[in-house]
């Protein structure tokens, strides 16, 4: 949560410098579910996450976005509750009107009563946006590979990716987005046990264009 505050402060302090650029902010709320199977069955925790995304458009084709999230995931059936916080930055370049290539890095932390685990994620991906007739609605498809993932106390995963899809409804300068996303991490087997982990979320996002 502290990290989220730092990012929010960074966005607000950067705003005057970006006075001539298009700036949008998007508060968001997610219902996230974390699942992990470390050889003892699937542990599941679920909870709300709040945060925001600030986006600066440097040119019609290039944008940079930072995001900050934080929330609590409540474990089920003996699973420990955990807090989650995340900071990330992402740059995207529009290649054709409906497709943008993206690269970004995210720092995530899980915190339980027993300890704290931090993740660093580097992703490369693409986002396709296709307008519904009338241009007021967009269908969104995202896919990204996470070729560089490190998690404290764990070896890096063999396979990691993020996928998402959703809709964006635009009314004048405001866009309401709803999106389902999923991250999947398959870690290499250790002592005959293969660790699988995923984080899925249903996110509601309200994008406000400030200038």
């Amino acid at each position: 949560m502290r990290a989220a505050g730092v990012i929010a402060g960074a966005i607000l302090s950067a705003a005057p410098a970006a006075a001539q650029r298009a700036l949008t902010v998007a508060p968001l709320v997610s219902l996230a579910e974390h699942r992990v199977d470390a050889g003892f069955g699937v542990e599941r925790s679920l909870g709300p996450i709040l945060g925001g995304v600030g986006t600066v458009r440097f040119s019609p084709r290039v944008t940079v976005a930072v995001h900050a999230l934080g929330g609590s995931l409540f474990g089920s059936q003996g699973v420990l509750d955990r807090d989650v916080g995340e900071l990330g930055v992402e740059a995207s370049v529009i290649t054709v009107p409906w497709l943008a290539l993206e690269a970004g890095a995210t720092r995530r932390a899980y915190s339980t009563k027993l300890g704290r685990q931090t993740w660093t994620l580097v992703g490369l991906g693409a986002t396709a946006r296709m307008a519904f007739a009338g241009n007021a609605i967009h269908g969104v498809w995202r896919a990204a590979l996470l070729p560089a993932v490190s998690a404290s106390g764990l070896r890096g995963p063999d396979r990691a990716f993020r996928a998402a899809t959703g809709l964006a409804y635009r009314v004048r300068t405001t866009t309401l987005g709803v999106e389902y996303s999923l991250e999947r991490y398959d870690f290499p087997a250790a002592a005959g046990v293969r660790r699988l982990e995923q984080l899925s979320a249903l996110t509601l996002l309200l994008e406000l264009r400030l200038r």
Binding site: L31, A32, E33, R35, D37, V42, L46, F161, A163, A164, T165, Y180, S181, L182, R184, L196, Q198, L199, S200, A201, L202
Partner: peptide, 17 residues
């Protein structure tokens, strides 16, 4: 995404999808 991609962990938040 919710079905094919993560079948071995069970559908994650199937309701959201």
């Amino acid at each position: 995404i919710t079905g094919a991609a993560n079948g071995d962990l069970g559908a994650g938040e199937r309701g959201g999808a």
